[in-house]
Design a binder for these strands. Structure first.
Lengths: 256, 256
DNA sequence: TCGAAATGCTTGCAATCGAACGAAAAAACG
DNA sequence: CGTTTTTTCGTTCGATTGCAAGCATTTCGA
C-alpha cells in the first residue's frame, strides 16, 4: 500500500462520512496511530480536514455551512438507503433535477442503473459523477461557483432552472418542521431549491430522519408544495399523520 | 523491447489499474527500478502520472477525480510554455473567459498566482481546477455536458456567454490557416468560441505551433477578429508578416 | 466543582527503504 | 565507426514509519 493511497482513501472516507477516528484507521490499515495522525496533519495542511480529539472532521470547521453537516454527522448507510428508495421512484427516460446536497450525490450514484435519464443539476460533483453514464443527457445550470460545496448558485442558476420543466425534482434540505416547513441554511440555496420545485411536476424531498423537527435559517417552501418525502427510517406517528394531512406521500424502508 | 513500448504499456496499466509499483514493474520487465523511475518521470511530464513513494498513481494526487483532457498528452511542454506566456498578459482583477480546450486548462493552472480574477468558463475541469483559489470568482456557463471533454455546450451556454462582457477571452482552436481563418472540429465548439470572442474586449488565441497551416471543419472567425496570438515557438516569417498585416499581436518565447 | 486517571497528542530519534544524481557501460542508430 | 540513447551501478539524499518520553485534554468519581 502506497502512503499516498492511504491518505487519499482517508480523504474520501472523510468526505463521505464527515469524520474519522484515529484508532479506527490505524487498526484498519495496520499502522500505528502516529502514522495516521501524520496523514491527518497533511490533509489539514491541504485544507481537507480539521483535526479533533481522537480523529478529524471534514473541511474547515469555521464555515457555517459545514458545521450543520458536521453536527448531523450524516451517516453513509442512511444516504445509501435513501438513494435506493429514491431510485425506485425514477423511471427510465425521466427528466429530473438534482440539487447540490450530499444526499443528492448519493442518489445520483444509485440512479446510474437507469436508462436514458436527463439530469439538470447545479452540483459540479454530480456532473462529474454522472459524466460517464452511457446514454444520459446531463445539463448544468450556469452560475457562480460556491467553492466549499462545488455548487453553482445565483440568479443565473435560477433562471436556467426556470427555463426547463422536468418530471421530478429531487432535493434535500437542512430542516423540516411542522411549523416552519422546509428550511435551509442560506438564501441562495433556498431560492435555487424553490426554483427546482416550481419547475418540476413532482418533487421528491430526500432527507435523513435527523432533519425532522429541525428548522434552519431560510424557508424554502411549505411541506404541501412537495409530492413525496423519502427518509431512511419510519417517522413518528405524528409526522405520518402530518404527511397524510398535507397529502404528501412518505417513503421509508418497509413502507408499502 | 523498445523503451517507448514499455512506457506505453506502463501508461495503459496506470490507466486501468489506477496505480503501479516501481518494484513490481522492474521485476516484470527485467530492468532496474531506476529505469522504471525514468519512465515514470516522462509520464509525469506528459501529465499522465503522479509519482509517489514506491510507485505512481494516475493523474493528479490531490484531486479526487481524474482529468480527462490531461490524457491528451500531446505537446505538454508547449502548453506549459503557452500557459506562462498567456499568464503574463493577464492583470490582477481581470474578468476573463476560458474555453474548454486542454490548452486553456494548462493556462488556468498558470493563472493561479494572480489575484481577484473573475473567470467564466464552460469547462468542468477548469472549474474544479480553480475552485480552491482564494478570492477569485468562478462562473460556469450552463448547458449540455459533452462527456468526452467535460465541456458544457449548446444554446444555453452561448446565451450565458452573451450575457456578460469581459476584459479578455482566452480560446484555442484546432487549426489556423491564412485562407480559412480560425477553425475547429465541430459546430457547437465553434459557436461557443464565437460567442466568447464577441463578449470580450480582447481575445487571446493560444495555440501550439502544430496548429498553424491546418484547417479543421468549422470556421470560428477570421484572424482579424482576435487581438493576440500566443504560441510556443516563433512562427515563420510568412506568418509573422500575416499577423502584422492583420494587426494581430503575436507572442512567443523571446518576443519583445 | 475539583482533581486524578485515562486517553490522546507532539516531538525527537533511529532504522528502513525509495529517490535523485553522476559516471560509466551497453545498446541502438546512422 | 562515431554518436546518441538507454541502462546500470554506486553513493548520497530524503521520505516514511515506529518507538518512547513528555505534554495536553478529556473523563469520571468523589
Amino acid at each position: 500500500m502506497l502512503a499516498i493511497e492511504r491518505k487519499n482513501e482517508i480523504m474520501n472516507k472523510l468526505k463521505t462520512e464527515q469524520r474519522v477516528l484515529v484508532a479506527e484507521l490505524a487498526k484498519h490499515y495496520g499502522v500505528t496511530e502516529e502514522t495516521i495522525r501524520r496523514d491527518l496533519d497533511k490533509l489539514e495542511k491541504e485544507g481537507c480536514a480539521t483535526k479533533t480529539y481522537g480523529g478529524a472532521i471534514w473541511g474547515n470547521s469555521t464555515k457555517t455551512d459545514l458545521s450543520y453537516t458536521i453536527r448531523n454527522k450524516t451517516n453513509v448507510d442512511a444516504k445509501h438507503t435513501i438513494g435506493d428508495l429514491v431510485s425506485s421512484l425514477i423511471s427510465d427516460g425521466d427528466h429530473i433535477m438534482l440539487d447540490d446536497s450530499s444526499t443528492s450525490l448519493y442518489i445520483a450514484k444509485h440512479l446510474k442503473e437507469k436508462h436514458k435519464i436527463t439530469v439538470i443539476t447545479n452540483s459540479i460533483e454530480i456532473i462529474t459523477e454522472l459524466a460517464d453514464v452511457e446514454g444520459w443527457t446531463i445539463m448544468s445550470t450556469g452560475g457562480r461557483l460556491k467553492p466549499e460545496s462545488l455548487a453553482l448558485v445565483g440568479a443565473q442558476a435560477q433562471a436556467m432552472i426556470r427555463k426547463y420543466h422536468v418530471d421530478k425534482a429531487i432535493i434535500s434540505c437542512k430542516g423540516l418542521s411542522a411549523d416552519f416547513g422546509i428550511t435551509d441554511s442560506s438564501e441562495y440555496h433556498s431560492l435555487l431549491k424553490q426554483a427546482m420545485i416550481h419547475s418540476a411536476g413532482q418533487t421528491i424531498l430526500a432527507l435523513d430522519s435527523s432533519k425532522l423537527d429541525k428548522a434552519s435559517f431560510v424557508k424554502i417552501e411549505n411541506l404541501d408544495s412537495i409530492t413525496t418525502v423519502v427518509t431512511e427510517q419510519i417517522p413518528s406517528d405524528a409526522w405520518l399523520a402530518h404527511f397524510e394531512e398535507m397529502n404528501v406521500k412518505c417513503i421509508y424502508p418497509g413502507a408499502k
